[in-house]
Design a protein around this nucleic acid. Structure first.
Lengths: 276, 276
DNA sequence: TTCTAAATGAAATAAATATTCCAATTATAG
DNA sequence: CTATAATTGGAATATTTATTTCATTTAGAA
């Protein structure tokens, strides 16, 4: 194999991967992906630590570097270190370079809305109620996740997160109009996690009525006291999201779902190392 | 010499220096100043390089560290490395009322990860490519949204957002194993919006192959050049999300989806006031 | 299938890096 | 000043970390 000139900086390296990356053997491709996914870690860790995380031998890292013309892994790593040095003010400075126009400006707007949501959530979330919710979910045999309309993605994610952590959860997706059938198998030893915000999807409201008739404990994530979920649920967690361009953020909802999942897994003491 | 407990993080160390710093001997005082002046360099360089820059012997660095209760310089250095790993918001938000324990602390962790994702996204997102993506989506008769596994909630949300804005979109939900059937109706006058991150769900990869065979333009949201989506797509947008407790954030993905939706709606000039 | 080349894992070795030790210097108290 | 303790520099050593080598596995061609 011809020994090419090694890339001179991180962007060069990335560009090279874009072209040549596909030709790499299986393991080296994994390495490439991993290095690009966590460039900061590459800069700050030793070859042994990195290779361990990726699940390859240190020698594989050295070989990987040599394929691109470096003498060894250390030379490649110095690209990652320089990258971290060069970005000090762009990357982690206090004032973020905001985009001023176009679609990326919209992106910034939504990012800010997310931030605002987080701050609001810190204020409105009652830690005690959250812990009670965790306790209830921990005791549940099966967690039924109910969410419709705009909240459906959050529900889908909750089901995913629970599953990834080895927690038995069912997403009530109402497919084929079978929502009622899906939730009707719930019992007092299970739990419902219901997610709904203004305007409360009538499907969700209808479904939790059934759960209530079954005496299944209901944990709700909703936006305020006046929510139909607040009165129906045993515990409800208040989360008021900010909006931008007439789209309400879902970021705090997602963060809360992740927090609940991990907390339940911890409490059950079966935290599988999976997730991601 | 009494061996004190070494500081646990960078801020601890800084605080300790504020109190004890003046009592240090001349050379060690120089060291303290230098380390605080360029903390990034301390994280990224070797003891020899640092000592050279300061103009002292490497052994002085070791002794310096030991004065503060560390076993050697390496232990002190790891504080500087951790500092660099932390999210930029970590520093500031320390002041803000952070929850210190329990599930709400987890919530804060995920909120910070989301923030870091936003910052990273600002760096990696190429405004030009974003605008091209918007243009492509604007021209599409129907937008097919493809996302599986962890990314599925994002896809579901994209379909929702497009719909709410009056943009014809189909969520390829692969129900009943009909994913291929669903996407097979796509044609060059449509567009695919594919979302996938490490580890790339094979379903998604398979589906976009079909779209490619149909010559349907593909717009991808993925995490790096090595992604199978990057090579298959006409345009791909790079988005590397941060993670916490081994769960990767989705916040930047959601923000980008919202931004794209709104931008397309604007461009089509049919922005219905609905959404939320 | 069999053969050959390529790729990988694991251990051995080399290189680098950090730490300790001791002699030389500087500061401080008497 | 002198004596003593504290601090520092520099070389020697120990430790960690990267790299090379070689045996084994895997993939590809004939």
């Amino acid at each position: 194999m011809a020994v090419p000139m090694p890339p001179r900086d991180f962007d060069d390296f990335k560009g090279l991967l874009a072209v040549e990356g596909d030709r790499l053997p299986r393991r080296l491709k994994e390495v490439a992906r991993a290095l690009l996914t966590r460039p900061d870690e590459v800069a700050l860790s030793t070859a042994a630590q990195i290779s361990e995380k990726i699940g390859v031998q240190p020698s594989t890292l050295v070989r990987f570097a040599q394929v691109f013309g470096f003498r060894g892994f250390s030379d490649l790593q110095s690209l990652f270190r320089d990258r971290l040095r060069e970005t000090p003010f762009d990357h982690r400075s206090r004032i973020v370079s905001l985009h001023l126009e176009g679609t990326t400006a919209l992106f910034d707007g939504f990012a800010q809305a997310a931030n605002k949501s987080f701050e609001q959530a810190r204020q409105t979330l009652d830690p005690e109620k959250v812990e009670t919710a965790v306790a209830n979910l921990t005791d549940a045999l099966t967690i039924y996740v109910v969410a419709s309309g705009r909240s459906f993605p959050a529900g889908a994610y909750a089901a995913y997160a629970f599953g990834a952590l080895g927690i038995k959860a069912v997403l009530v997706d109402q497919i084929g109009g079978l929502g009622k059938t899906q939730i009707n198998t719930s019992s007092p030893s299970d739990a419902i996690l219901a997610i709904s915000f203004t305007p409360y999807a009538p499907e969700t409201v209808g479904l939790i009525e059934i759960a209530r008739a079954n005496k299944t404990p209901i944990i709700a994530i909703t936006d305020n006291v006046m929510s139909p979920l607040a009165s129906a649920a045993q515990i409800w967690l208040e989360l008021s999201e900010a909006d931008y361009a007439s789209f309400r953020s879902l970021s705090a909802t997602f963060a809360l779902i992740m927090a609940l999942s991990v907390a339940v897994a911890k409490k059950r003491g079966l935290e599988k190392t999976y997730g991601s």
